[in-house]
Write a protein that binds this DNA or RNA. Structure first.
Lengths: 129, 129
DNA sequence: AAAATAACGCAACATTGTTGCAAATACAAA
DNA sequence: TTTGTATTTGCAACAATGTTGCGTTATTTT
């Protein structure tokens, strides 16, 4: 197993994501970092944070990739880490928030092996009404 | 209201999507068309087909945008057209299929106005097992 | 047939994401 | 503290995807 190191970039990016109530895009992280590190480094740090289960990736209805913290996921079960909670994508402010307490139920179709799910609702968030 | 015309490109693209059991990406459509029209035209035709409710857009877990036909959506209710059915995204063959008969249920959170949903399950499809 | 308008092709550009490689650095061990 | 080494970084270059402007072509209406 490859050892992973703590660097300024990683610390700052994780802090940003953890302190944000909404999921952040790569572009948003980059401009928030204000030139702290290279564009490419951000991609690589995000990749690392995902494999370390510190962060998860969400895609909104338009296909924009965003990153959110995993503070809702208990650390004890990180080895079976999944992100099977719903997300909300606001059509107005384009923000993505985690809806932790909504657990959708559905009938599993035969012959399909389900490993992950992406359940994103979109519309207008409380702030934009 | 802007008038819309039937062109060779539009006819062929719609035929492709309607005859495909899986959702198609822009790249897949382009190579299937074999140079019938320009890359940009495909984007514009797809846009048109979406506003005409002939086609809908799906995004898989990796953020790849695909297009699927709307034959499952009854034409009478096109003015209240939504695509609230689930999709399945195979991790192996990367194909997206519509799971028409799965209607997920969930508790609607307060203060959120929900207009659309994207419910994508991913894993291994019957063909890849 | 002429006028109006929708669709197209092309070129140019923007954004997002990836890869290779040499230089910088974090961190454990001496 | 210094040293050794694997990890991380920056840079440059590239690929894929999507958008826009504009002059030309095609379709529809009158």
């Amino acid at each position: 197993m490859k050892q992973t190191r703590n660097t300024a970039a990683k610390t700052e990016i994780l802090k940003l994501i953890n302190h944000s109530p909404v999921a952040l895009s790569h572009a948003e992280i980059q401009s928030a970092l204000n030139g702290l590190c290279d564009r490419v480094t951000i991609y690589r740090v995000l990749e690392r944070l995902i494999t370390e289960d510190e962060v998860h990736k969400v895609v909104n209805l338009e296909g924009v990739v965003k990153y959110a913290s995993c503070h809702s996921c208990s650390s004890e079960e990180k080895h079976i880490h999944t992100h099977n909670h719903a997300h909300f994508s606001c059509e107005k402010c384009k923000e993505i928030t985690c809806l932790e307490d909504i657990e959708p139920s559905f009938k599993v179709p035969k012959n399909y092996q389900i490993n992950e799910m992406n359940f994103t609702l979109s519309g207008i968030c409380p702030n934009c009404r």
